[in-house]
Design a protein around this nucleic acid. Structure first.
Lengths: 348, 348
DNA sequence: TGGTTACATAATAGCGCTATTATCTCGAGC
DNA sequence: GCTCGAGATAATAGCGCTATTATGTAACCA
């Protein structure tokens, strides 16, 4: 007597309602052809295409990109790591990236460092778990472990919003010390001698700190000019700007030219000057950074330096897309200097 | 003579450097145990845990979440669809969502509708391709196809930034007509009678349009009061606000109370009044919407209505996390009214 | 006519992981 | 001493798709 081995009954795993096999069956074609229809539509005959399209429509098929990504060992995800989209600068860049990448059916995955650099490694590790088509990082300061992870993964990397010496792969941005230099030069050119950089959160915002540094250096190289820095650890806001102006009047009463770490600060400075009756630009020239939405409309309108947040996003997207379309092309180190623009308005 | 069937040699697909099997081998355990280590750490003995942790570290193992998601038929991705993060309101909510979800190791996937409602369906379709843990949509107006897709997928859905009648699943936000009503009531209470709503892009921004509607209705219900609407199809900005004030003076010269569709517009109105010598609030009261970063510091400081963008994000995240942690709990329709706050400042 | 292409479609074998079931170990309880 | 069960670990069978190879068919040339 023989025992008939009964096949163990396994309760099925939860699964997708409609799969590529269902579409294939309905279109009376093989799953391979349906897959090809998605990946290389031109390789499928018109008749087959139509049948597949009809089947997809009838069944309301939604492809499973995780299955696809697993099989293809790559996904159409671009992981973007920024300090925070609460910051209008990065929001603009993320929006531009999103818009451009979306046209190529690339998905954006978003993470925040909240200016905590040491978290970045974990964020990168998680990002890599999705076998992304590219990773976008903000700035150039990254831990050795982060660099190694990214290097080993061979994923295209774009560093944005800062240009400088050590670039991992591709970079799009501008030199922040040049921004500081430009602000100082402008003020000096307007006849200002006692300069001051007013900043928020310089200890965490390395890029703002570099602007301050460039500002001071430019003033130092000019005979008869001087430059100081005052700052506040709080996030940038008009309130902080107003407060810092008060502090500046006490500590540096002769100041006649101010550059701010960004336009929120500058707006606060302007408002406070209005309240105190300090004439801008007659007695004090003010230069901001950011060209935020209110800057042109302020009274007096705000001289500021416009960082091309939108362009940075667009160019980063362009580099990513180019790399994806031609993965075999020699991996030339692309560094794009987007520059910035000083907008001379009434406040200086 | 027999032919020995030679196994066809297939070039291997590109693959991951280190897999869970490598970790298991190094830790001298089975892949199952390593998997368990990630999913239910408590079920693994201390000794095994340590061995696995060591192996992961030594090999620099990065899990493949696509493989995991495929096997588990669900991913730790939350798909967020907003008009644009260029808009500070949504940026704030996205940031809050990101922060809260990140704590639970949930990834944010971001998409923009750019206020084009008909695109939403495609975005939702793509979102569902990732078997997301939840989907977040902005507003309550969605196509029938979008609703069906989401309903069939059984994915938790949160609609944010608007409250009203037809909710798909969960909703977090406030009633925009109540915002308009509150602005009108405030102005009437301040003795204003000839009211005006100044808006940008009302044809696309349904929520702003509802605020305008609530504003006008509140005025109509008050004897002796009147309310009009003027608008501009361009996106909201201080420039547009300044322009619209000019238009308002020509068309409605007796206006004494203005509510704006947002603070950018209101700031433009204030600036233009400064230039024209119109005293605020003596001759004209101005109410904004948004409480943007500059509003409190403006001169005069801007009376405005603060939408709790941050709270919306936090509450939405809370609902999502609760649903994920207790998937079996009866799917109670959660609607959270976050309300809004009128901040009375100098401009009214 | 045969052979060579080019094109279109199909069969095959995983991608790396998880959920389920099965097995093993060890101490408690009789 | 033996069974039993709890706890820990392992074996198994896919998840849904893509990349590769194989096959079929029509078009073309000598």
């Amino acid at each position: 007597m023989t025992m008939v081995a009964s096949k163990p009954i396994r309760t099925r795993r939860k699964m997708q309602r409609v799969t590529i096999m269902d579409v294939a069956a309905r279109a009376e074609l093989s799953p391979s052809t349906v897959s090809l229809y998605f990946r290389k539509p031109d390789a499928v005959s018109a008749a087959a295409s139509e049948a597949i399209a009809r089947a997809i429509d009838a069944l309301d098929y939604v492809p499973n990109l995780m299955a696809g990504g697993l099989a293809a060992a790559s996904s159409r995800v671009v992981s973007i790591i920024v300090p925070s989209v609460r910051n209008a600068f990065f929001a603009e860049t993320v929006a531009a990236l999103q818009d451009e990448l979306g046209k190529q059916r690339l998905q954006v995955m978003l993470s925040h460092t909240e200016y905590k650099e040491h978290d970045e490694e974990n964020l990168v590790r998680t990002a890599l778990s999705w076998a992304p088509a590219a990773v976008v990082l903000t700035g150039l300061s990254h831990s050795a472990a982060t660099r190694r992870l990214l290097h080993d993964s061979k994923v295209p990397v774009v560093e944005i919003w800062e240009l400088g010496s050590p670039t991992m792969d591709m970079a799009v941005g501008f030199h922040h010390d040049q921004v500081g230099h430009a602000a100082a030069s402008h003020l000096l050119q307007r006849g200002r001698k006692r300069l001051l950089f007013v900043g928020a959160r310089l200890h965490e915002d390395r890029r703002a700190a570099r602007r301050a540094q460039g500002f001071v250096e430019a003033a130092r190289n000019t005979p008869g000019a001087s430059a100081e820095i005052i700052q506040n650890p709080a996030p940038a806001s008009a309130e902080v700007g107003a407060m810092l102006l008060g502090e500046a009047r006490l500590r540096f009463p002769t100041v006649d030219g101010i550059a701010c770490s960004n336009d929120h600060i500058a707006l606060g400075v302007i408002f406070e000057c209005q309240r105190l009756g300090i004439a801008i630009p007659e007695r004090l020239s003010v230069v901001g950074f950011g060209d935020l939405s209110f800057s042109a409309a302020a009274n007096p309108s705000l001289t500021t330096i416009r960082p091309p947040g939108d362009l940075i996003g667009k160019e980063a997207a362009r580099l990513i897309i180019a790399r994806i379309l031609h993965p075999d092309a020699e991996p030339q180190q692309a560094v794009i200097d987007t520059r910035f623009t000083l907008l001379h308005r009434q406040s200086s």
